[in-house]
Structure formats: structure tokens, C-alpha cells
């Protein structure tokens, strides 16, 4: 009986601690100056098609301080790898050596996939995301909407909750979203540190979001 009670108390305590940590990590992210050491290791989630085009437009504007750059693409995506490689080779960095790698993980959600099977495949994707993010320990995750970014952001969040490393989550909603957030956006709105939207109507609906006009 005492063992059972002890277990229950332990589980409750751990859960409470976990929630408190989650709250602290999410609420204090904006204070975290990841770039003060001079460079920011970035994990960039490229989706497919339009998502990849948009995120590469953003990457184009970032300075060489965002090094190294780890790109993650869905394993069913053929086009993105080509786009990333041609983008990186065209990027003129002062340090001449371009530092980037591409990783593949299973896609967490295909377009039009049902909810139940989405949950299952997202869990599978999480199994791949956790070891990847724990190994790379990026300073930030930059993503813009493909389903693949949810498990990667959750893995980043977990690093923070466990006190191993604060991983900033930077989300940029696609230019296509004028009135409503994407499903990914709705989820990441709560755990991202910087949440960008590109239409003022979304900024009005989501007060935590950052609106700088059109940025892609």
C-alpha cells in the first residue's frame, strides 16, 4: 500500500515539476540570447514545395552567424534536397566553407491523412526526432508549417524542460495563411518562442504573434 502510494506521489510530483518546467521554458524563451556566443546552430525544417521555397527565402536573409545549419526533410520528399543544396552552394559566406547537413525523418502527416493515423505517424516521427535533436542540440529550430516540424519542436522543448539546453522555437506561418492558422501553426503557437505571421488579420487574432509585414 505504501509502495503504491509512494509511486502515485512520485508520479504526481514529477508531472507537476514537468509542467512547471514546461511553463518556465516557454515563458522565458524570449530572454534567452542564443547568439551572444557569436554563432547560432540552426535546425531548419524544410517541408516540401512551397514550404521549402519560403524557408529558403528566409535562410537567404540570415547572416553567417547562423552556423552550422542542419536541414531536416521528410523522407518522401525528393525536391527539397536539391533545392537546399543549390541554395547552400549559391550562398556566399565569408567563411567560404559552407557548413550544412541534411537529415531525413519519416513524414509525420501527409496532406489529407486522417486524424487517427496522423497521431500514429507523428509518434513514429517523434521517435526519429528525439535522438536527432538530442544529438544535434541546436540553439534554435526554424520552421514554417510542414507537419514534420511538430515532433522536432517537441523534442527541442523537451531538451529545455530537462534543463539540458534551451532550444528556441521560431515559427513563421506561411504567406498562404491569411485568415486562419495551419494545424501546425495552431499547435506551435503555444510552445514557440517567436511566432511570425504575414498578414495583419492573423496578428489581430493571435496577440502573441509577431507581424513584420510580408517576409518571404
Amino acid at each position: 500500500m505504501t509502495v503504491l502510494l509512494g509511486t502515485v506521489v512520485a508520479v504526481v510530483l514529477i508531472s507537476v515539476l514537468f509542467i512547471i518546467r514546461l511553463f518556465i521554458v516557454v515563458k522565458t524563451g524570449w530572454k534567452h540570447k542564443a547568439g551572444s556566443r557569436g554563432s547560432v546552430a540552426a535546425l531548419v525544417v524544410a517541408g516540401s514545395g512551397g514550404h521549402t521555397t519560403e524557408i529558403l527565402r528566409l535562410m537567404e536573409s540570415l547572416s553567417a552567424a547562423y552556423t552550422p545549419r542542419h536541414y531536416v526533410i521528410a523522407d518522401t520528399d525528393r525536391m527539397s534536397e536539391e533545392k537546399i543544396c543549390s541554395f547552400e552552394s549559391s550562398k556566399q559566406h565569408s567563411d567560404s566553407e559552407s557548413q550544412f547537413t541534411i537529415y531525413r525523418i519519416p513524414r509525420s502527416r501527409e496532406v489529407h491523412q486522417s486524424w487517427t493515423s496522423s497521431v500514429l505517424s507523428t509518434l513514429t516521427a517523434l521517435c526519429y526526432s528525439l535522438p536527432l535533436v538530442f544529438r544535434l542540440r541546436p540553439d534554435m529550430v526554424l520552421c514554417n508549417g510542414p507537419g514534420t516540424c511538430v515532433p522536432l519542436c517537441v523534442a527541442g522543448l523537451l531538451l529545455g524542460i530537462l534543463g539540458m539546453k534551451k532550444v528556441l522555437i521560431v515559427y513563421v506561418e506561411s504567406i498562404c495563411r491569411v485568415e486562419t492558422l495551419s494545424l501546425t501553426g495552431k499547435i506551435l503557437y503555444f510552445i514557440s518562442d517567436y511566432f511570425f505571421v504575414q498578414w495583419s488579420s492573423l496578428r489581430d487574432k493571435y496577440p502573441k504573434s509577431i507581424f513584420l509585414g510580408r517576409i518571404v
Binding site: 524570449w30 540570447k33 542564443a34 547568439g35 551572444s36 557569436g38 547560432v40 527565402r57 528566409l58 537567404e60 536573409s61 540570415l62 547572416s63 552567424a65 540553439d139 534554435m140 528556441l168 521560431v170 513563421v172 504567406i175 517567436y194 511570425f196 504575414q198 509577431i210 513584420l212 509585414g213 510580408r214 517576409i215 518571404v216
Partner: peptide, 20 residues
């Protein structure tokens, strides 16, 4: 249709992350 300004994003992020 004026092009988007990714530079605004980069400037914001540089400042937020404390990049000189």
C-alpha cells in the same frame, strides 16, 4: 506586388537572439 522583406525577419531575429 512588392516583394516580401526577409531582411526584416533577419534583423528582428538578430536583435532577439543578441547577435552583433
Amino acid at each position: 506586388f512588392p516583394p516580401g522583406q526577409p531582411k526584416n525577419f533577419a534583423n528582428f531575429l538578430d536583435k532577439a537572439l543578441g547577435i552583433q
